[in-house]
């Protein structure tokens, strides 16, 4: 692919260490339904040690093609996912679908750039990558180090989804749906019609504290809509593969509690700083990584709800 050749040439000209697209070990994946493979991310923050492999990512094999759903939190994880696919099929990877623009779901994109592969995302994804990409790369270079991050590129979607789109993998249809602002303003879900497996991206969290980076009120509305999808099981963005729609219950309770507590704090004249400490404190024992994400959720919720 032109980009890759160009990159390598340019990096060589710059005297940067030439990165090696080495044969990677295959990422461990489970076949949760016929032709549907999932790597279960570790419930953790992205670190040098875990190479960013914290999100659930996967792929679906049809009769004529493969679709990848999210590419992981580093180029290395993306390469390992590619190796896992190649260990199972030599059918072409026609689509790489990004469920949204967060680093743990799309830093591996560059590993899949080649002729014949289309990148697919929400119509708002290009804007999100533009406004956030350079910041993400810089921030995660600090955290994970240059070796894992220097090769990351914000590969934007070439197929944009607005509303509902289907992709055909050969006797296998994927239904993609772009959602209004919820977890982010560029959330996309993928339903495999054959197995009724729903890849929900970060519209669904289990165990891992939900992360609010879009709209709290929007997310609560989207949860109600999501519940009507004809899925049997869900691959959440974080947490274990679960029955549908029961998997939504914990997250709905958390977000509802957050919204009502923040509303009450605003009504009583409390400051945004006070809200970060006080809202939804009862949820603390029910989630992992609560101290890493909850205060920011409350901060974001406050700045949204104060405009009601």
């Amino acid at each position: 692919m032109a980009c890759r050749v160009w990159l390598m040439t340019a990096l060589a000209l710059l005297g940067a260490p030439t990165f090696v697209w080495a044969q990677q070990q295959a990422l461990p994946v489970d076949e949760i339904a016929p032709g549907v493979f999932v790597h279960s991310g570790k419930t953790a923050l992205m670190t040098r040690e875990n190479a960013g492999a914290i999100a659930n990512i996967g792929f679906i094999i049809g009769e004529s093609a493969v679709a990848v759903i999210d590419t992981g939190g580093s180029v290395r994880e993306g390469q390992q996912l590619l190796a896992a696919i190649r260990a199972r099929t030599d059918r072409p990877i026609r689509y790489v679908i990004n469920t949204h623009g967060h680093p743990d779901h799309m830093f591996g994109n560059i590993a899949f750039v080649q002729d014949g592969t289309s990148f697919v995302g929400h119509r708002n994804l290009p804007r999100a990558l533009t406004t956030r990409g350079p910041f993400y790369i810089e921030a995660f270079r600090r955290i994970m180090g240059g070796e894992l991050i220097d090769d990351v590129r914000m590969v934007p979607p070439t197929i944009l989804v607005d509303g509902i789109t289907t992709l055909d993998l050969g006797s296998r249809t994927l239904t993609l749906r772009a959602w209004p602002a919820a977890h982010t303003d560029n959330d996309l879900t993928v339903l495999d019609e054959q197995t009724r497996i729903l890849f929900a991206g970060d519209l669904v969290f289990l165990s891992h504290t939900p992360v609010l980076d879009g709209s709290l009120r929007g997310w609560l509305d989207v949860i109600d809509e999501l519940a009507t999808l004809p899925a049997q099981r869900v691959v959440p963005g974080h947490g274990v593969v679960s029955e549908w729609p029961a998997a939504l219950a914990d997250q709905r309770r958390y977000l509802q509690t957050l919204a009502s507590d923040v509303r009450a704090l605003i009504a009583s004249g409390k400051s945004i700083t006070a809200a970060a400490g006080a809202a939804a404190a009862a949820e603390r024992s029910r989630w992992q990584l609560f101290d890493d994400f909850h205060a920011r959720n409350a901060t974001a919720a406050f700045s949204e709800i104060e405009w009601e």
Binding site: L45, A139, A181, D185, D213, R296
Partner: peptide, 22 residues
């Protein structure tokens, strides 16, 4: 600096525009 996927950019760029001047 914040960790995770937090970024110093709008969360819902469309909403931010729709409130302009309120």
């Amino acid at each position: 600096a914040s960790g995770g996927c937090s970024a110093p950019a709008a969360k819902t760029a469309d909403d931010a525009r729709s409130r302009l001047g309120q």
